[in-house]
Write a protein that binds this DNA or RNA. Structure first.
Lengths: 170, 170
DNA sequence: ATCTTTTAATTAAACATTTTAAGGGGCCGC
DNA sequence: GCGGCCCCTTAAAATGTTTAATTAAAAGAT
């Protein structure tokens, strides 16, 4: 626990214990970058008839078609009703379709339609263009490191965010 | 897209077009990380009576008190009406107060109340705890690089996102 | 075999956030 | 002064999200 100098503005001293200030800067920077990214990406995706948030569903299904609604919700970090809503909207748009599972009738599996499959490329291009713009003068190594760190952050935070049913002892 | 290459080890094949795959991974990773961050941060802030999105206002004012509503909106990347709403809510909560500018009556300047000033520390602690959790096994250098890259991404994207009134010719 | 519990998806209701469009004044150039 | 512009605000609406309750089916127990 280091010293904290919260009164007023951050000192511009360049010391090693500067890390705390750097840390505090992370969440705003991440929030801002994500907001800007979403803004630009939404605009790029709009031409395909897609809204932000739908691209993740299509990309997930492109990876493994036939996921259940619950699995999609968990993977994308939203609650089940949100995913139901999203899937319903996308089904109405013709990007995907629901089919009951043959073995377990409780499950609803989601499959890409041809239109949905076509949109994969559009999404990847939009995301790629957006990412390229975002990382204009970055080196490949920087980008790789960035993605790696972001995924690590997500993993760290999700470990805390999840309710984590730990059977204390039995 | 036929090939599913989700194993995350995209660096196996070293081709030129490989960068696209790495790039495509950035926006989902950024989105997910930001979502997880917001979830955890909201939970930490909730105890202070603050909702997500309000912390940025308070931190901005802590840096330079008396910002105008428009300046806050621009700094935080939201539209003016959003900021009006946010400020109104926070004023009702007692975190800040509006005062008309003495020189320019059009401007509304926003100042922290003592309660708002007190919450600065709570916010910084919450953000710090969240950031620390997110970057558990990161080195200082990694964190610094991460913040630097995130800010660069934001700058790159905002340059594009802004309407940028260039009167080339009509 | 039947009853109870658990799991999955949905629906319903509510709420937060944000945006566009429009309104109300104050400032400044002419 | 007058017109245009800028800043904040209000109003209406879209989007996204959550919790709670409902329906249906599988799994397990008696």
């Amino acid at each position: 626990m280091g010293k904290k100098r919260k009164d007023g503005k951050k000192s511009k001293s360049k010391k090693k214990d500067q890390t705390e200030y750097t840390l505090v800067d992370l969440s705003p920077a991440l929030t801002q970058a994500a907001r800007s990214m979403r803004t630009v990406l939404s605009r790029n995706l709009f031409e395909s008839g897609l809204y932000a948030g739908q691209d993740g569903v299509i990309l997930s299904l492109a990876e493994s078609d036939g996921m259940t609604a619950g699995a999609l919700a968990q993977k994308l970090g939203v609650k089940a009703p949100t995913m139901t809503r999203t899937i319903g909207r996308m089904e109405a748009q013709g990007f995907l379709e629901r089919k009951p599972d043959a073995e377990d009738a409780r499950l609803t599996k989601v499959y890409l339609t041809p239109l949905g499959r076509d949109s994969v490329q559009a999404i990847e291009m939009a995301a790629s263009a957006c990412d390229r713009l975002a990382t204009l003068e970055f080196s490949d190594k920087e980008i790789r490191n960035l993605v790696r760190l972001l995924k690590a952050i997500d993993a760290n935070l999700q470990a805390e965010a999840l309710p984590l049913e730990e059977p204390d002892e039995e």
